[in-house]
Design a protein around this nucleic acid. Structure first.
Lengths: 99, 99
DNA sequence: CAAACGATTGAACATATATTCAATTATTTG
DNA sequence: CAAATAATTGAATATATGTTCAATCGTTTG
């Protein structure tokens, strides 16, 4: 892997590498969720959610869609879902090896 | 996703979220590589590689195997490979959408 | 056993980053 | 138009983190 690829891919991993941000992404993985919903589900302030969503949107991990006063966010594409699934498999495997 | 899972999974993403560390992992993805090889391939000091490998080993993303004076490291299991592959697909897709 | 080699460790430092709080911007509705 | 609701923004801050450098540890070999 060359430097440029590494930087680009690492940037995405880095975004998923924060617990709050990861929960925000998984929260709007199945269907679009507005900021208030996400904040309540994750258990943090709307302000913090908004800050994180700005980063996620900038790297196109989520897309925004305003409907009236609310803004709905949804995870970008199916690759993210696959990545998350593989990672959950990895963690599950770990636990099977060392319970 | 519950808090505990998020923290555990985010921890792994976080490790892959640094360009240097990501390149270290990909460097010993196919076959075991010793610290010197990794340092040269990635283009950083052996000291830095060692620091990063300590973190990667602690989270069991790599395994260590000493042979004489050298210590060989190899990526832990196939899930990591799948995660990386999906992420590369994601990046490739992005570039196809916005060249 | 001493020298050489490879790898690890710890301290130090500059930088990046997650979070909070208050202020501001959009949009709807009374 | 004013009030209310939802979301964004910016500044401030405490903490985490990547990197460097020098010292140390483990192993082999002359």
């Amino acid at each position: 892997m060359v430097e440029d690829q590494a930087i680009e891919i690492a940037e995405i991993f880095h975004l998923l590498g924060d617990p709050t941000r990861l929960r925000i992404v998984t929260c709007c993985l199945e269907e679009p969720r507005n900021v208030g919903e996400i904040a309540e589900t994750v258990g943090v302030s709307a302000s913090l959610v908004s800050h994180h969503l700005r980063l996620l949107k900038a790297t196109r991990l989520v897309r925004a869609d305003r409907r009236g006063k609310q803004v709905f966010y949804v995870a970008a594409d199916e690759h993210v879902q696959k990545v998350l699934k593989d990672m959950m498999d990895h963690v599950a495997e770990q636990h099977r090896e060392a319970p």
